[in-house]
Design a protein around this nucleic acid. Sequence first.
DNA 1: GTCAAAGATAATGTATACATTTTGTGCTTG
DNA 2: CAAGCACAAAATGTATACATTATCTTTGAC
Lengths: 244, 244
Amino acid sequence: MAALPAPETSSSTRFESVLEAVRAAILAGEFEPGKRLHEIKLTTLLGVSRTPVRAALQKLASEGLLDYTPNRGYTLREFSMDEVISAYEVRAVLEGLAARLSAERGLNVGEIGTLQQALRDGDDLLRNGHITDEHRSEYSRINACFHVTIHASAGSRLLNDMVYLCQQVPVSSPRNVVAFEEVDVRRRHEDHHRIFEAIVGREPWRAEMLMRDHVASVKSSLIRSLASPAAVQAATKTARRLRR
Amino acid sequence: MAALPAPETSSSTRFESVLEAVRAAILAGEFEPGKRLHEIKLTTLLGVSRTPVRAALQKLASEGLLDYTPNRGYTLREFSMDEVISAYEVRAVLEGLAARLSAERGLNVGEIGTLQQALRDGDDLLRNGHITDEHRSEYSRINACFHVTIHASAGSRLLNDMVYLCQQVPVSSPRNVVAFEEVDVRRRHEDHHRIFEAIVGREPWRAEMLMRDHVASVKSSLIRSLASPAAVQAATKTARRLRR
DNA sequence: GTCAAAGATAATGTATACATTTTGTGCTTG
DNA sequence: CAAGCACAAAATGTATACATTATCTTTGAC
């Protein structure tokens, strides 16, 4: 097993450093699914005592990355493709609910501004004919901003936490980057415009259905790309997690 | 603050005993919302060291009952009525999704048998004219069995975990038992029949809508009973949590 | 009298020793 | 040779001492 990065990043407590280090190691594939993560091995790897290691493992278990059995420690969960797909199903209904609640409550001026800015930024980015990898990366940021703002405007912490949990589900496939065709990006950006319109127009049901289908379309892309491996782009180490 | 029950219940590790003891104390209202839960006070109350106490507090925080801030410990969350209501919204869409996935996958013979038994037991219970408190308690068990079976048949652990999280949201109101009129119980049992029919008949969309409305109706009951306090039954210490 | 800074107090963060449980190894036994 | 028991090794569970951080109190200056 390769040495883990030093935990002294920028966090205040060792627990947080260890948490991020172990999480990164898991997502980087440093551990085998189903295998145990021994506390002592991690302490020697990270140069800290068992106390923060135990806390970090417990947190990762609560996020769903590890399984815990009393007196037997933690094992790395393995995620089947079914579980990854159903994570998108869950996320679709949750984000749909967030859009509905947001439309019911109404957006405040700050949220409207943020969403409009995200829409404008996306428009500018997609104005040019061809989109490069930098464009994709930038759009990913814009996209996240758009969705996070809607989650927050729903006003439910439970809902926020659950969307976060969905995003913690790793993709088990070795080539785990969904192939985003340019046409897909453009279509999803159009979705954003309509979703914003529905929320601002206080149309809860329409907002929910649009958002649900918007998120579910990523699931469809995932299934399509897995069915035809030729369409799968080369996976990079830096993009291990699916964005919508 | 009253003394907590002794932790030596029947669990193997002290961590689990402490977890249940503190959880019970929280739900019994032994702590004030927004106030800190000091580790040392809990150690003296429970007669264990800080190690299992810390682990239990961390778990409770991951379940959403406590807030954690580094170097500042844990505080008891307070749940507004809005949060309680949106917890039911979340649960409605999640259980709706579970019913849809169940209808898509199809039930196995064991699941069909369990559900049919739950439906028959409910029929028998509601055959008599008037229902007593024991009937309500027994129906609660039957109801839980029905729902749990459907969650399991959906085949998504993430979904299961999230429904569990919804159920962990405590009700902040001092009178926290929803008034279940007899007519409500009968209507919900009828819902169960139709939901079962939709799942067995492999009608995913219908199953989802029926289940969603079924769970959402509890939210409506909650709002109704809060709007007219006269309709709120006397709350008992033994029924601190809302059942659907 | 109010505010601020410094010290005292108390809480959480961490390391480590010890207890308990699991797990692996090798021996015995049928 | 296989099965099972006993012991040994290692891992997790727990307690506790110490380190670090937050909080409270007191003291001083303005």
